[in-house]
Each structure stands twice: as C-alpha cells, then as structure tokens.
C-alpha cells in the first residue's frame, strides 16, 4: 500500500504538516518497497479548493491511504468515495520517520 503524508520539508526527519490541502510537500511511503519519495504539493498555492486538489493529486500519485492530522469534510468524503483510507495521526509534532515506523 502507498501512503501519502503531508510534511513541511522534503526529508524523513521533517515534521508532519498540520494542513492537508496546503501542506508544502507530500511524503509517499511505499509499504512494499519501503521507499519514501517527496513531492511538492501542487495545490498548496490554490486560492480555493486546495483540499480537493491535493486529494486528487495524492490519488493520481497512487496513494491508497492518507496519514494526516485532520481532513476537511470535503476531502474526507472525496477520499472515502475513492476508497482511500484515512489514518488519523493523534499525536502532534510527529516526524515522517515516526509515522513510517507505525506501518
């Protein structure tokens, strides 16, 4: 399974970004290969609709799950309708390393 995680910097030691739609980068962690790639979030600068645009982006990158602090209602229903799992991160200030360690 491929998991998308919003983060503030393109590095494994970076913190999870509290925002989903406007996060700076996405970390994509592939459970099979155990590889993580970082991609800039193309939706971050959207005036409106950053959430749905970011959801569309992570799904187009093959994400089957999103691990994040919180999602808006629009994003939640979009991801649900696409059968993308939401993994809620309950702890603040997690690093990408730590999140990956959860899987």
């Amino acid at each position: 399974m491929k998991i998308a995680i919003p983060c503030v910097q393109p590095s494994a030691s970076a913190l999870v970004d509290d925002r989903f739609g406007r996060c700076a980068y996405f970390a994509f962690y592939d459970e099979e290969t155990q590889q993580t790639t970082f991609v800039e979030n193309p939706a971050a600068q959207s005036n409106e609709g950053a959430g749905p645009a970011a959801a569309q982006f992570v799904v187009s990158q093959g994400a089957e799950a999103v691990a994040a602090r919180q999602l808006g209602p629009k994003v939640t229903s979009l991801l649900q309708s696409l059968s993308v799992r939401f993994i809620e991160l309950n702890e603040a200030d997690l690093t990408i390393d730590r999140v990956i360690g959860l899987f």
């Binding site: 409106e48 609709g49 950053a50 749905p52 645009a53 187009s60 979009l78 696409l82």
Partner: peptide
Amino acid sequence: SYNAIFFLREPRR
C-alpha cells in the same frame, strides 16, 4: 482555475 472539477484518469473519475 478554481479546482472545481475533480478529475482522475486512473481510476476514472
């Protein structure tokens, strides 16, 4: 320009 069309080629949506 308003992110008002949700589009995915694969899966088609």
